[in-house]
Nucleic acid binder design. Structure first.
Lengths: 196, 196
DNA sequence: CAGTCAATATGAACACTGTCAACATGAAGG
DNA sequence: CCTTCATGTTGACAGTGTTCATATTGACTG
């Protein structure tokens, strides 16, 4: 059962933990997060969190899920800026999705880093459940149906575009590229895939 | 002055610290590295490291540099597998460079992660001094001179290819893509840029 | 309503950690 | 010889994640 309101000792500790942990990660990054300071901030004893999470890592994994939700919301909002089906709207949506991904990395660097921080084996569900990836696939399909894509390039193109935008964000965050170069990337990708 | 041999208390502590820290990062990742266990392993007191590094972070930055060296060595070796100037060698070198970057991420996941871990502002020197990036630029230039590249796509292409391969490596390490998809990426990139 | 039970929170403790200030040591040079 | 300076040690401080035994509470059962 899910917690039932603020009538218990604390009430909904697990949600409160995720919530303030999320805000701490957003502001200072996940490395400097301490379970003890978190508990102190919530007026709770240091070991209270262990009734809801096995580990500090388990709590941070819950925060990771929230980070992905935040990214997906941005991608949805970007897609809705160009809801039409005209050629211009399709291309505009393609650009907007790429920019939204990179803008999120620039404006919420800690959330973006934490969203992709965990090193683990390949999990097919992770990509399948990603709203961002689904939006990218559908815009590429629409571009293909309109013959706006160069012929014969559709196979694997969703992956290629995704890794490009993601790689740019990562390299910009690690100081190897300037965020100001984002438009160059979008233009370069467009030159590579759009028919003229 | 650089240290002068094993005649002092320890001799060359700073090199030894970087060396064993590097091996620890390679095996277990940078998160679980402890200065104290490192000092114990070297038969030295816990605070001895502070004569050579201001911080734990400073030591880890030295390790980061070593990680980039290891990556650059792989890229050099890959380029030398196709040293010729024939069309086949040029394309082979392009593929080999991409594969070497991704193979390094797969075979040395901790080193790769640590190499691009730090979040910091854009530093123009970082990219300029990267051997991997220089090798990529030169192969793209050679492909262009041979008219193997589709016309009009050269601007920003080095960045686009780099972020693609890097993004693939990152997403594979975080479990969002399978490393087995690497050939698909290389083929997709080739379809996008090579003239037919 | 009374009583049991599982969920939840507490307190004290353990084994760690990074970091620092004060002190010791030894090699090198005037 | 004796000072100087880089290097290393000792001991301490303030935190950390985590566990265990214990207490408290809300909800369900008879």
């Amino acid at each position: 059962m899910t917690p039932q309101g603020p009538t218990y000792h604390h009430g909904a500790l697990s949600e409160a933990l995720i919530d303030t942990a999320f805000r701490h990660v957003q502001a200072d990054g996940s490395a400097s997060l301490s379970l003890r300071s978190l508990a102190h901030e919530l007026g709770v004893s240091p070991s209270a969190a262990y009734n809801h999470f096995a580990d500090k890592e388990a709590l941070l994994n819950a925060v990771t899920a929230q980070c992905h939700v935040a990214l997906d919301q941005r991608m949805d909002a970007a897609a809705q800026q160009f809801p039409g089906t005209s050629d211009a709207d399709l291309i505009g949506r393609f650009q907007a999705l790429g920019r939204a991904y990179i803008d999120f990395a620039e404006q919420e660097p800690r959330l973006f880093s934490h969203a992709f921080k965990n090193m683990c084996d390949f999990n097919p569900d992770a990509a399948a459940e990603s709203r961002a990836y689904a939006l990218l696939c559908s815009i590429l399909d629409e571009l293909g149906e309109r013959h706006l894509l160069r012929p014969g390039i559709r196979e694997g193109l969703d992956m290629t575009i995704w890794v490009s935008v993601h790689g740019f964000a990562e390299l910009a965050l690690s100081g190897n590229l300037p965020f100001a170069a984002a438009p160059l990337l979008i233009e370069s990708l467009q030159r590579l895939i759009i028919q003229d």
